[in-house]
Design a protein around this nucleic acid. Structure first.
Lengths: 234, 234
DNA sequence: TTAATAACCGTCAATCTTACACTAATTTGA
DNA sequence: TCAAATTAGTGTAAGATTGACGGTTATTAA
């Protein structure tokens, strides 16, 4: 026997769960689906995998098409494969979650896709199993961010400690003591204090920090401990 | 437009990375591939996904076919999709890793597949990208076992603390202080001491323990801390 | 009875984590 | 220009956790 001729072939799509942070809230980028079935309904950005394309490339392509961004933090989340998940024809979906700096994305809110940012607690009804995908992505984000400094991917190059704390508090829907928070974060050595202050959101102004890219790469895989009581998380 | 008619369809396979522990070493179950290409070479156990089958069901079916076991701990690992990974025809592989109690598997070393257990440091050359899959599975196992009590899935119902420690030491290729190890493990409250002792491997004999199934489920997702210095892990 | 083997146990010092409250810088408006 | 309002920024003490470390106990075999 040569070839795998009796075997069934499937459609394979990628779907992107795209997180952004506007300084206040963690948000999700959704589009209004442009074709049937479920045309006009809210959906994750996705697309079919092409003939000579890996899933990673497909996900990058799809993300780029919507946001215009490259070199974005992306991670494979899960392969969804319920035979009935797409009513037209069986299609597996390989999901990726992406973290983007929402400010970088401002240029062109790609009207082509009717894209919109939704706060995590106001996600509309989504097509197919996309709600489940979003839930899984939120969970994984929380899990991973408790151990690794990935949330910096959501921030601009320069950010303040209060901004960082608001982000963490948003992700964990919780509040942290700022003294303990800053001590922990600074003790990692990942942050470099800048001379300038951010003066818009407070009278006193808060110093900017930048990520030490070198240490970021080195320490990324070590277990950090950014949030209090991780043991009590579900 | 109805249907997705212009889109490319792909073959999709599942491959299982099957770990077992024989009391001494962590091992991997491999088979000799029974068909071309690469017939006779060492390979992970795998199979094509069938028409109305989810990936999870396919992985369970494939695992069952080889081991005869059901209700095995399995977890989706990663979707591998390099267009050239299978030379005959483009095939994506969704990988799952499984943890089995090696004793449960003794009955019939399924001669059909020429299956064999290999210690992790003696894995032969594998077909396609299977070596990469195994590496990723090892890494994920180490990662996950540092935080969650999954290694119990590799042990029989009753086991001793020394056995458990040998397992952990094998997984992390390291040695731990037994006083600290038992203190940590017992402090989780996951273990229930039995009255009987295991008398084969020592003169004094070591008490058996069982998992408290209820607490196991409850605490599985909390971050535990079974191994020393997790921060120093890569 | 003795020797050998592996199980089992407890303490102390260092580190880490948490809880908690005041001062500093700046802007605004009285 | 002074007072009030706002948010940034900092330190300490108590408790919990972690890691290093050695001696005793139970059992078997000689």
């Amino acid at each position: 026997m040569t070839g795998y001729s009796h075997q069934k072939r499937f459609l394979v799509a990628v779907d992107c769960i795209i997180f952004g942070f506007d300084g206040q809230q963690l948000k999700l980028l959704l589009i209004q689906r442009g074709f049937e079935p479920e045309k006009g309904k809210w959906s994750l950005m996705g697309g079919f995998v092409e003939k000579e394309e890996s899933f990673e490339l497909a996900a990058g392509r799809v993300l780029h098409k919507l946001t215009g961004l490259e070199n974005v933090y992306m991670e494979q989340l899960y392969a969804f494969s319920d035979p009935a998940r797409d009513p037209i024809e069986r299609t597996a979906s390989i999901t990726y979650f992406a973290l983007i700096d929402i400010n970088q994305y401002k240029h062109q809110i790609s009207k082509d896709y009717h894209a919109e940012w939704f706060p995590l607690n106001k996600i509309p009804k989504l097509i197919f199993d996309h709600t489940e995908m979003v839930e899984m992505a939120k969970e994984k984000l929380r899990y991973k961010a408790a151990l690794h400094p990935i949330l910096f991917e959501l921030l601009p190059e320069k950010f303040t400690l209060p901004q960082l704390q608001v982000l963490y508090e948003g992700v964990y829907d919780s509040t942290f003591d700022k003294r303990n928070f800053s001590r922990k974060v600074l003790s990692t050595g990942l942050l470099v204090k800048q001379k300038e202050k951010e003066k818009e959101s407070s009278k006193r102004g808060a110093f900017y920090f930048k990520l030490d890219k070198r240490k970021y790469k080195t320490k990324f895989d070590a277990f950090l401990n950014f949030i209090p009581n991780p043991h009590k998380l579900k």
